[in-house]
Computed example of a mutant assay.
Amino acid sequence: MAVTTIDPRTALVVIDLQNGIVGNPGVAPHPAADVVERSVRLADAFRGHGLPVVLVRVTAAADGADAVSGRTDGASRGRSFPEGWDVIVDDLAGHPEDITVTKRNWGAFYGTDLDLQLRRRGITQIVLTGIATSIGVESSARAAHEHGYHVTLATDAMTDLDPETHRNSVERIFPRLGETGTTDEILEVLAKSRV
């Protein structure tokens, strides 16, 4: 599905574009630098139209005390992270009008004030970008859909740890949650809706 419209009250929500995640060389199909550059272009356009930009970052206590409980097959406890791994990348940081949300889960809604921040501003639609497509972005898109937001996904402004999981999200999951498009397509619709 193509991007049809950008609501008058739309927010850009950028997932986990922070030092420790963007610095991971093993992402695909888009290099992390391209995801950052496209997210910056979207953020600049949103700010230029007076629309909110939400920068979501994930963090964890050094001792793992705030780790999500539950049994999994994948190792997630006992990991330590270097100093500054959870800092938003410089290319996106430094705009005092932006909203920063800190999460400790995959998705940006559960356990955060994201929904409150959006509702207080009358937001009806979100545009999502970030890393990783099938984890933080997809979890946030699912929750946004469940919360009743119109969801738009900038598919070339996200990437994953595996190109197949990215493809699965983009081709099978996202069309059921909202509209998908490239950064340029979203910018074109944004420009037309703001004239």
Rank of each mutant, 00 (worst) to 15 (best):
G94R: 08
L114E: 10
A132F: 11
L128M: 13
L92W: 11
P82H: 04
I135D: 10
L128W: 11
V89T: 01
V87W: 05
G111H: 12
N105D: 05
A75T: 04
R77W: 13
D91H: 13
G107D: 14
K103P: 00
V137N: 01
T133F: 05
K103Y: 02
W85E: 00
L92R: 01
E138S: 10
L116F: 13
P96L: 15
A132L: 15
D113L: 08
G70T: 04
E83Q: 08
I123A: 03
A67C: 11
T124S: 15
A143V: 06
V89K: 01
V101Y: 05
S69T: 14
L114P: 10
Q125E: 15
D73K: 13
G94F: 00
W85Q: 00
V87Y: 07
T100M: 00
E97W: 04
E97F: 07
R120E: 15
V101Q: 01
D91R: 14
R119D: 06
P96F: 07
V87R: 09
A75P: 00
A144I: 01
W106A: 10
E146N: 15
V101L: 04
W85Y: 06
L92K: 01
L92C: 03
S76N: 07
T129M: 07
L128Q: 13
A75D: 05
S139V: 00
G84M: 02
S76R: 12
R142Q: 05
Y149S: 09
D66F: 11
A67V: 12
P82G: 04
E83A: 08
V137E: 03
G107L: 09
T129G: 05
S140F: 13
A93I: 03
V137L: 02
N105Y: 14
L128E: 08
D66H: 08
R71V: 12
E97D: 13
T112Q: 08
